[in-house]
Amino acid sequence: MLFFSFFKTLVDHPVTVELKNDISIRGTLKSVDQFLNIKLDDISVVEEVKYPHLSSVKNVFIRGSVVRYVHLPGSVVDTALLEDAARREAAQASAKAKAG
C-alpha cells in the first residue's frame, strides 16, 4: 500500500511513464489506484514517429502491469520521508511474518 499512497501524493504533477514495450508517455498524473493503474492527462509520446498511434489521444488509462518505470520530478519527492515509510512498512511486514 505504501507505493499507492506515494503515487497519490504525486497527483497533478508531470510524470513520464515508460511501458514494457519501450513507449514513454509524458503527461500529468491524474489518478492512480490500488493496482497502480495510472491515468494521465495531456499526454505526449516521447518518440512520436516511432509510436504514431497515440498522437490524437489526449488522456490515457494505463494498466499497472504494463508499466516499467515512472519517471518522477525530483522536486516533489521527499526522499527522507519515503525512506522512513519504506523502513516502517518493511519492519511491520517482518514483524507480521514472525508472529504468523
Partner: peptide, 14 residues
Amino acid sequence: MLGEIDLDKDDYVP
C-alpha cells in the same frame, strides 16, 4: 491501455 481521442485532432497521424 485506453485513451480518449481528442476530437480536435481526430484521426491525426503524424
